[in-house]
């Protein structure tokens, strides 16, 4: 990651919106987070031009690490063409003057809230997560002093309560998103609201994963080649979601699917949640059972709109 000093964009904002002191402060927090995988480092979260809860943590992390030669990708619910993703991507294109992309393989920084792309991440890539609630124990233990002590003393039995509740209620560990993991066999971590489908992608990943929680003022990280283990019971081992259906558009059998309701009669289709992955496959000639459906063109249209600006 290269950085620019005092390079003004459009005459109004510092490079990447934040002032240099703030970016330095955040980079120090990031360094500490990388040094202690999974540990939540407090930082002085700034007011951003979007409300808390809309990804301010991820935006601040990106702003602190992005340089002019970075290629930036932003996804929301796995898709590059949703409102938030488009807006945040345009934000950085403007204030950091960087190239943007929708292709996972081309990106150096990928900002996300809900997904890790289907394409394997490579060395040198950085995932930036927008985290609403960094504390995995918070739902069970409201006292910050107590959860800090639990992390300090590695007392993570409490986290199993949520798994117990899930098995008791559903007969299996249901929990779809934000499924708790143990990082480097030391710190319990909430991997942002990614589906547990994506948890295995964190384990021994080649990429650097940075998590920013703006409202809660915490940054944490999973460095490359780090063990990440999803919690489970001996008799209810961790497993990921799977679908009987293939992607209706590209025919992909093993990707994470979104269910799309098509009409009032309940007609529905399952499509890849990762829009970039899906279009790459279609470009390569794969076709699903509903290939050619009007939704097939959605991604291209959005990209065209953005290009037209």
């Amino acid at each position: 990651m290269t950085t620019q000093t005092n390079r003004m964009q459009h005459g109004a904002y510092n490079h990447a919106y934040l002032d240099e002191q703030t970016k330095r402060m955040i980079r120090r927090a990031i360094l500490k987070a990388v040094a202690i995988p999974g540990y939540q480092v407090p930082f002085g979260s700034r007011e951003m031009p979007v409300p808390y809860g809309w990804g301010t943590g991820g935006i601040q992390v990106t702003a602190s690490i992005i340089g002019q030669d970075d290629v930036y990708k932003c996804i929301d619910q796995g898709a590059d063409d949703t409102t938030n993703a488009v807006s945040i991507r345009r934000f950085f294109a403007r204030v950091a003057d960087v190239a943007t992309t929708e292709r996972t393989a081309e990106a150096t920084i990928i900002q996300t809230r809900h997904r890790i792309p289907e394409a394997p991440l490579k060395e040198g890539q950085i995932m930036v997560y927008q985290v609403p609630q960094p504390e995995p124990l918070r739902g069970l233990e409201p006292r910050e002093t107590e959860t800090r002590a639990m992390h300090a003393y590695e007392e993570y039995g409490l986290q199993y309560l949520s798994l117990y509740e899930s098995v008791a209620a559903f007969g299996r560990i249901a929990g779809g998103a934000g499924y708790p993991v143990l990082v480097d066999e030391r710190y319990l971590m909430s991997p942002s609201p990614i589906p547990k489908f994506d948890n295995p992608k964190l384990h021994q990943s080649e990429a650097l994963h940075l998590f920013g929680a703006g409202r809660e003022k915490r940054i944490y990280a999973v460095p490359p080649h780090t063990d990440v283990r999803s919690l489970d019971f001996e008799d209810y081992p961790f497993d990921v979601q799977s679908w009987d259906e293939v992607c209706a558009l590209c025919g992909c059998p093993d990707s994470y699917k979104d269910e799309v309701i098509l009409d009032d009669e309940g007609t529905r289709m399952f499509v890849c949640s990762d829009s970039s992955h899906c279009s790459d496959r279609r470009d390569a000639g794969h076709a699903g059972p509903m290939a050619g459906h009007e939704l097939d063109q959605g991604s291209a249209d959005a990209a065209n709109l953005e290009d037209a600006e």
């Binding site: 739902g139 069970l140 039995g157 309560l161 008791a168 019971f233 001996e234 008799d235």
Partner: peptide, 20 residues
């Protein structure tokens, strides 16, 4: 916020029991 059963089982989990 958690069920009665989970309340009773919690000390077991706190002490390392991992078999549901």
């Amino acid at each position: 916020r958690v069920s009665g059963g989970a309340n009773v089982a919690e000390p077991l989990m706190m002490n390392g029991q991992r078999h549901y």
